[in-house]
Amino acid sequence: MRIKVRYFARFRSIVGTGEEELEAPNGITVRELIELLKERHPVLRTEVFAEDDDLADVNVSRNGRYVGFDDVLQDGDVVALFPPVSGG
């Protein structure tokens, strides 16, 4: 299945693109997609996900809505990755 991944803020500069499409296995979860992206872009391992299961530094939306890491993706989904928002 095809999934479009959009990168925002520091993720865009780390990966070097704002958007890409990729082929993913049917039934892939958000967590598994992130693992796939870390394989595709090893810089994510060192710059964002230094710990084995460090997902605290990423927010994920699917088709414009926040989702959990165990949500199952569907063909044609648009997944966006962006850092947590803080304000003051």
Rank of each mutant, 00 (worst) to 15 (best):
V79I: 11
G87L: 01
E20L: 11
I34V: 13
Y7F: 15
D77E: 03
V85F: 10
G88M: 01
R45D: 09
R40G: 11
R45T: 04
R2K: 14
D71K: 14
L22H: 14
E19G: 10
M1H: 05
D53G: 11
A56M: 11
G27S: 07
V5Y: 03
V72R: 12
A80R: 01
A9L: 05
E47S: 09
K4P: 00
E21Y: 05
E47M: 07
R45P: 02
L55N: 08
A50V: 13
G68I: 01
R6V: 04
E19C: 11
E19H: 04
F8I: 03
E51S: 12
R65L: 14
D75I: 00
V5F: 02
E32K: 15
G76V: 04
L81S: 08
N63G: 12
R12Y: 03
E20C: 09
R62V: 14
L73I: 03
R45A: 04
N63V: 13
A9H: 02
V67P: 03
I28P: 08
R10E: 06
V72N: 00
S61H: 00
P84R: 05
F11Y: 15
N26I: 02
V30A: 02
K4W: 04
A80M: 01
D54M: 09
R62W: 00
V30H: 00
G64K: 06
I34D: 11
P42D: 04
R31D: 03
A24Y: 05
V60R: 14
V78N: 08
L44P: 03
P84S: 13
F49N: 08
E20W: 06
P84F: 12
T46F: 10
L37W: 10
E51C: 02
I14V: 14
S13G: 00
E39N: 15
L44N: 04
V85K: 13
I14Y: 09
P25H: 08
E23L: 08
R12H: 07
D53F: 12
A24C: 13
Y7A: 02
L73D: 04
A9K: 08
R31M: 13
G88F: 00
R10C: 01
S86P: 10
T17H: 06
S13N: 12
F11W: 14
G76N: 06
N63Q: 11
L81W: 03
H41R: 14
D70W: 04
S13K: 05
A80P: 00
P84C: 10
R10N: 11
G88V: 00
I28Y: 07
D71T: 14
V30E: 03
E47Q: 12
E19T: 12
V78E: 13
G18H: 03
V48S: 12
G76S: 04
S13I: 01
R12C: 02
G16H: 02
D71P: 07
E39G: 11
D53Y: 14
L37P: 09
D77P: 02
V43H: 07
V79H: 06
E47Y: 04
N59D: 07
S61I: 11
E21M: 06
E23T: 11
V48C: 10
A50L: 11
E23P: 01
G76Y: 09
E39P: 06
H41L: 08
R10A: 07
D52I: 11
